[in-house]
Design a protein around this nucleic acid. Structure first.
Length: 582
DNA sequence: GCCGTTTTCGGCCCGACTGTTTTCAGTCG
């Protein structure tokens, strides 16, 4: 029984926790943690790599030792090292370490002094007032742990970007309206466009730190605050009623660049940046570059460009800051010319009242025109998807007549084309025959049903659609839904190879609950020579405003505009479609 | 345990805040 990338990443993460609990060398602990994160982000299937004889040392943070451990897991489905540790460390103690404010040291003390093995026993002891007697603890620690255990049960997963982003913007707008606030931004993983958010990092600049206290006070007293987790002069954290944690940092305008860079992260990117600074004899933190010997004057940076310039690099876009080769690319002058929201002037995937959308064809066209789109494709669901009113072939032609009329009425201000989002059915066949597909302007094929089929079966199903010459785009290829539904178990290497051969495009679905393809897959797809499209899958007018999420995802995947169908001029797009099966 | 214009050993980012301490350890990001 071979393990998936995710399962192997989970094992390394738990090994890291167990080593930490045992008080192992912090760098060894970190090595397992970094390896876990690298594998989690790695887009290629380790089983496939092993079959091809590829080296796992190409994966960042995987050396000879961990490479051997991966092979052991792939061959046997187990890791002896893990089993040995698991026999020594009670599993409940790992869970205890995941409580906010409890680390390895406190978990050990609870275990040694009170014999507590797990979160339930810890909660019980806290309620009975026993924790305050543990050495180094007091009544406050006890209360905080109790509150943190309750918070843990409220929020177990990371928050989807599409949920966190509007909340962050709403709070930020209120802060920006306050006196003396010069500028503000949601930094952290929101700014990097990660699909899910741990907590929200807000940053605001003031002229002088004397102006900070009233801003901090207003922040921790907002209506939506459930409780205050920390409240200092420059940094405060609150938990909202929703369970989402928001951190606010206030800093002087003249240090905006270093602070913004620091709080945008990622942590891995920051560590590399600090290393580059040290190479130049400078220590970098959120405030400044300083001389460790204290001989030279500190360097303040008001912009991020200044920060990168100080270590001899060009500006690196936030979406690239994951230590996935962006530092090296910057050093070699090989950073990608990333796609921007302004590059997008079409939307190739949207629904109307013909199936499960909320607006008519004409209303969608007008809404798209208002948003500056130059052309759109109406792609309602196909006949087998009865739950959402999929169109029969007869309805498809009625719809085509309406779309032609709307297109004519728009008088060239925006072009409206007729497509479909056709179901790839559970048995692997497509929902419309070829003689129907060739009469449409554009064809998307998508998976919505039987997403839990075994790997071989569902991969073959998708590749069958990729190879149909009438299909132009695969919609949300992996079928994930954030945060609840895992992607289908697809052999993406095989899908990308087939997509390259057939010349078909793959979607980055911009809906923040999908973001599918995700960044690492989009990056691999382009590297392998595939084309992409970024679409909103809009079911209503305001859904069209979600495009920026898709663009961030593409940017995280190092995608340039030239690889994306809906950045092309209309003529080029039509030419491309015509050279495919119609 | 990883990694290499410090390359097979010896480093490995750095500060804010909290709570319990009387000067700092633990945790977090």
């Amino acid at each position: 029984m071979s393990l998936s990338n995710r399962e192997i990443a989970d094992i390394f993460e738990t090994v890291s926790d167990m080593l930490q609990l045992k008080g192992e060398n912090v760098h060894r602990v970190l090595a397992y943690r970094n390896a876990s994160e690298s594998i989690r982000a790695w887009p290629r299937d380790l089983r496939t790599m092993q079959r091809e004889g590829a080296s796992f040392n190409d994966i960042p943070n995987i050396g000879d030792t961990l490479s051997e451990k991966i092979i052991e897991m792939l061959d046997t489905g187990k890791l002896q090292f893990y089993d040995k540790l698991a026999a020594e460390v009670p599993k409940g103690m790992i869970d205890m370490m995941h409580i906010n404010g409890v680390g390895p040291k406190k978990a050990q003390r609870f275990y040694k002094e009170l014999g507590i093995h797990n979160v339930q026993e810890l909660e019980q002891a806290a309620r009975e007032g026993k924790l305050r007697d543990v050495s180094g603890m007091g009544a406050k620690t006890e209360a905080n742990i109790l509150a943190a255990i309750e918070a843990l049960s409220r929020q177990t997963t990371r928050t989807p970007l599409g949920v966190a982003y509007p909340i962050a913007q709403s709070i930020l707008e209120r802060l920006l309206a306050m006196p003396n606030v010069l500028q503000g931004v949601a930094a952290g993983s929101i700014r990097r466009g990660r699909p899910t958010i741990g907590d929200v990092d807000l940053l605001v600049a003031v002229t002088s730190m004397d102006e900070a206290p009233p801003i901090m006070e207003a922040f921790v007293k907002m209506d939506e605050v459930e409780r205050i987790l920390g409240n200092g002069p420059t940094k405060s954290s609150v938990e909202l009623h929703s369970g989402l944690q928001i951190d606010l940092r206030i800093l002087a305008q003249e240090r905006w660049g270093t602070a913004l860079a620091y709080f945008t992260g990622s942590q891995a990117h920051n560590i590399r940046m600090r290393g580059l600074a040290l190479d130049k004899g400078l220590s970098l933190n959120e405030h400044e570059f300083s001389d460790p010997q204290g001989e030279k004057e500190p360097i303040l940076c008001a912009t991020e460009e200044d920060v990168y310039a100080a270590v001899g690099l060009p500006y690196i876009a936030p979406e690239l800051r994951e230590d996935r080769g962006e530092i090296e690319a910057a050093q070699q002058g090989k950073l990608p010319k990333l796609i921007t929201l302004e590059d997008i002037h079409a939307d190739l995937h949207m629904h109307t009242t013909w199936s499960d959308g909320g607006l008519t064809v004409r209303e969608m066209a007008e809404a798209a025109l208002e948003r500056g789109r130059k052309f759109i494709v109406i792609t309602d669901h196909s006949r087998s998807l009865g739950m959402v009113g999929g169109l029969t072939i007869e309805q498809l032609w009625e719809q085509q007549a309406e779309i032609r009329q709307v297109d004519a009425d728009m008088n060239g201000k925006i072009r409206v084309f007729h497509g479909t989002e056709m179901e790839i059915k559970g048995d692997g066949t497509l929902d419309y025959p070829d003689d129907v597909l060739e009469k449409l302007d554009f064809v998307i094929a998508s998976l919505h049903v039987s997403l839990r089929q075994p790997r071989e079966q569902i991969t073959e199903r998708l590749i069958n659609a990729v190879n149909n010459p009438h299909v132009d785009l695969i919609g949300h290829p992996r079928g994930q839904y954030i945060p609840d539904r895992e992607p289908a178990d697809l052999d993406m290497d095989a899908v990308f190879a087939a997509a390259k051969d057939s010349g078909i495009a793959l979607e980055i679905n911009a809906n923040p609950r999908r973001l599918d393809l995700e960044a690492d897959y989009a990056r691999l797809a382009v590297e392998l020579g595939c084309l992409l499209a970024i679409n909103t899958d809009a079911h209503a007018a305001d859904n069209m405003d979600l495009m920026h999420y898709g663009v961030s995802t593409a940017r995280r995947g190092w995608v340039e505009a030239k690889s994306v169908l809906n950045t092309w001029p209309l003529e080029k797009f039509l030419d491309w479609v015509q050279k495919r099966g119609r």
